[in-house]
Design a protein around this nucleic acid. Sequence first.
DNA 1: CGGGATGTGGAGGTGATACCTCCACATCAA
DNA 2: TTGATGTGGAGGTATCACCTCCACATCCCG
Lengths: 240, 240
Amino acid sequence: MNEPISTESESMAPPYSADAAVVASTDMGPAERTLRADAARNRQRVLAAAAQVFAERGLDASLDDVAHAAGVGVGTVYRRFPNKDALVDALFEDKIENMLVLAREAATFDDAWEGFVHFVGRALEWQMRNRGLRDVLLHSDRPCAGAARTREAVTPILTDIIERAQAAGKLRPDVVVNDVPMLVTMLGAVSDYVGVNDPELWQRYMVLILDGLIADRAGWTPLNNPPSRAVVDAAMTKCR
Amino acid sequence: MNEPISTESESMAPPYSADAAVVASTDMGPAERTLRADAARNRQRVLAAAAQVFAERGLDASLDDVAHAAGVGVGTVYRRFPNKDALVDALFEDKIENMLVLAREAATFDDAWEGFVHFVGRALEWQMRNRGLRDVLLHSDRPCAGAARTREAVTPILTDIIERAQAAGKLRPDVVVNDVPMLVTMLGAVSDYVGVNDPELWQRYMVLILDGLIADRAGWTPLNNPPSRAVVDAAMTKCR
DNA sequence: CGGGATGTGGAGGTGATACCTCCACATCAA
DNA sequence: TTGATGTGGAGGTATCACCTCCACATCCCG
């Protein structure tokens, strides 16, 4: 087991600090202007503060909070990002994309069960450390159209991994892809519940559940009525 | 299995309809007045509506909603119950007490593992069907001082059941009482997430987890760092 | 180095939502 | 019939989030 779930504390940080400095967003033409130096600096501050605040408190955190954390006025936030959704989009787009990268990576494992564990472990790690990311991925009424697209792309890959792991007799056969968002939901709830008082506690229950997913013993109580696609969609779309 | 508190669809209903009709609350002296007939009727309507609304939407539902559901004005609600907390108290006190009854009952099982399953299964059933009850039991910043008292009384009983089940080799040894509120939290999250679209889905994951708690195979990944009492208390007290 | 372009802070507008009060009016019951 | 009791729901108060606006500050080009 090449210990894929490992720590590497804060692997989420780098992506957004790379681009966004002087030119606002993608060079989609000559319409983009160059930011004044102080403005660019403040834009970065806002992004950094937003990353922190949303990671800790989820997307329910207000932009006033973000502005305060960034040491700027609210007006400054809104000058750079037309509204909250735009800021969230800018912050999470690549982190969401990472889920797809992760799924593709997990698909390359020879042992599909290990691939499954790799995906679930890493995905949970990121989403538990970052409440905002969890919100974006679990609620499609949130911004980030990218989230829906990514989910759509990840699902078949993960389905394949699951089926291969089941065919190999490693994963219990009554598990389905749609169980995965439910795992995230469950462990996310633990994470929210205990908060900073025990930030790693979710791992205890991840281990418990993963142990329970191994198909290596007789006498499983069969799992009935897996969540349907419609149910998952409805849950994600529900107003909150 | 003498399944005493069994299903009887909506076994939660009767308790509060028995007393509260003509005399408001317990006969704690001559200070209590007799309600006018229509007032008593409305009081019952309010209680029934509150039971339904809080069960479906949790304690976050507003009293305006309750009043609307009861077909009365908000003023009527506040005439009978000085504030929201009082109404919640009146509604949930006995349902909370039931948890203690359930624990005592579970303690009488010869097979401690079956007692454990009995308790967990029933407790979850009630709390999943009734979001308000879950809120009251999981968040001590909510009303219902009775909740804290009941938790305090249930804990040692449940601890004993757990330890006996472990001594009998049925329950994996690294489980602790404090895991139980986490189970409720996890399954409650699933329940909230899918809502009415799949109201029984939580059972799927309860089965999965209970299966995972059975101590009948080698090679368990050991569970580290169980939630401490302090962590649980903090979670329950946290502002929400 | 000066002046126009650009950026800033944060008070406050708007709207939502919750708890709860108040009182003109309705209903009951002696 | 008549006062005691009860009622509805408009609206007071508070909170909180998103977002706008503009007097003032800061930059940077010529």
